[in-house]
């Protein structure tokens, strides 16, 4: 079926709750599109280390797949790396932290604000700028940043942070304040690149990890200021949370993002299906981005197909 809307028309219609000619496509894991650049041999390490290479996956991926959005997710260890964590970068794997920078309570307190003009923060900002420049007139572009609590758990190991929330509360807050300051600098740097939106990864907004009070204490109070700043810097505030049992009331009703994307995880008792999320009214003022489980869409379908005789 031929498309009758262009990308921006389609995305704007979806955002405005108007009919669209087909489902809008909002890709998050763009690392894979490095394989459609040039000879297809770009490594993951190269992709995350060079702004031009980072942007090229978005630009070439767009030619190939015709997406409606370009979302600048690199990986979840950008901030943690710039805070001094050792990040392993493989040829074919997403970079990840192998040795977290923050090991002791003093480390939380001694943490200083990473310079957004250095390290991979810089690569991310510049790379985002390049794909925004190339694609911004055809589709909706957005920067992507890790929220403070996510960055902290990446820089100090999640299990440790969760224990320290109780055992070393004030030190955890000290670190969160520092990271929030860094995030503020990142928002401003991203704002200068003029993407249409900025997506926050507020990953720990899950009832399987934190209740309402703890979520407010360890993320909500920091996120509010960043959400506001995002708007002030001229970007639509969006949220990505692919955890189970998401804090929908806080993240959608209170934070009021323009788009909320989530990977549904309905096997946990009480975790909402896409249909239930919409029925409960969360999609009334917010575009809900659901997911097509890559496996269900590829493997599941293939298993049901029969070869013609």
């Amino acid at each position: 079926m031929a498309d009758t809307m262009n990308h921006i028309e389609r995305a704007v219609a979806a955002l405005g709750d108007k009919p669209v000619d087909r489902l809008t496509a909002y890709p998050l894991a763009m690392g894979v599109c490095r394989r459609v650049v040039g000879d297809g041999k770009m490594t993951y390490r190269d992709w995350v280390s060079d702004p031009k290479k980072f942007a090229s996956a978005f630009i070439e991926g767009q030619k190939r797949f015709d997406f409606d959005f370009a979302i600048g997710l690199m990986d979840l260890s950008v901030a943690a790396g710039d805070m001094g964590s050792v990040v392993r970068m493989d040829d074919q794997n997403t970079p990840f932290v192998t040795d977290p920078a923050l090991k002791t309570v003093e480390d939380y307190e001694k943490l200083t604000v990473p310079d957004v003009k250095k390290g991979r923060s810089h690569v991310l900002v510049e790379g985002t700028g390049l794909f925004v420049q190339a694609l911004g007139s055809q589709l909706i572009t957005a920067a992507f940043l890790e929220g403070p609590l996510l960055s902290l758990t990446q820089a100090a190991s999640a299990e440790k942070v969760f224990m320290d929330m109780y055992n070393n509360r004030s030190a955890v807050h000290k670190a969160l304040k520092t990271i929030t300051e860094y995030n503020g600098d990142m928002v401003k740097a991203m704002g200068a690149k003029k993407p249409a939106g900025l997506v926050w990864d507020y990953l720990w907004g899950s009832y399987s990890c934190l209740g309402d009070a703890e979520y407010e204490e360890f993320e909500g109070q920091y996120a509010r200021g960043l959400n506001e700043l995002t708007g002030k810097e001229g970007m639509a505030m969006c949220i990505h949370n692919c955890a189970d049992l998401p804090h929908l009331d806080t993240q959608i009703k209170a934070f009021k993002p323009a788009i909320y994307s989530m990977a549904y995880y309905p096997l946990i008792p009480g975790s909402p299906s896409p249909k239930e999320t919409i029925e409960k009214g969360y999609a009334d003022n917010c575009l809900i981005g659901g997911q097509i489980d890559p496996r269900a869409s590829c493997a599941g379908a293939r298993r049901r197909c029969r070869r013609p005789p």
Partner: peptide, 15 residues
């Protein structure tokens, strides 16, 4: 580590 709170960051799941 990145497999957290129900989230398997799509790329990590691939790893």
């Amino acid at each position: 580590k990145e497999i957290s709170g129900g989230c398997i960051c799509c790329q990590i799941a691939g790893n």
